[in-house]
Design a protein around this nucleic acid. Sequence first.
DNA 1: CACATGATCGCCT
DNA 2: GGCGATCATGTGG
Length: 189
Amino acid sequence: MTELSRSFYRGNTVAVARSLIGASFARRYRGAWYLARIVETEAYLGSNDAAAHSRGGRRTARVEPMYADGGHLYVFLVYGMHHCANVVTRRPGMPEAVLIRAGEGPPEAPPALLSGPGRFCAALGITAAATGMDIVDGSDYRLYRRDRRPRIGVSPRIGVDYAAEAKDWPLRFYDRDSRAVSGRPRLRR
DNA sequence: CACATGATCGCCT
DNA sequence: GGCGATCATGTGG
């Protein structure tokens, strides 16, 4: 397992979003590591992206982690009850990030357990306490490079209808062969 | 299967 | 004061 590097995260945000499909997200909780295979992501392209929290150069306490160097986490609370986790990309001052929308857990886990950004965070216990964390310096959060290149599907992003023309940009990426991708034939239970 | 709705609260204007 | 980078549940066809 090769850990993803700082220079990787500093690269083109769309390229990072694509490359993270199939990558492993690891989280240490009370000494034990928990892993998930990422199967769905979305790219958020900074100041000029009407769907991004950093649109128009917004720079508030919440969004501040998006302005950090590539390789940090940006976690926020939506709808008062769900958390969404992002991996920050590019360089300091460039507020771009990749939203992790879904993952696969261990085979014995329910298929939909990590299907959706809120569920992904809930399953891995990711809360706002993790925002701003460095994922390259060996903290409790780490990402590992994928070992195989999956078949990748592309679509507009989910839940950003307010974002004018940016709502149609093809910035959502997913593993075409995964059942855990969100917004699919419901895999309840 | 396709909507429709309620929950719930921090953030931003 | 309004509204989300969501989800679970409920209705109707």
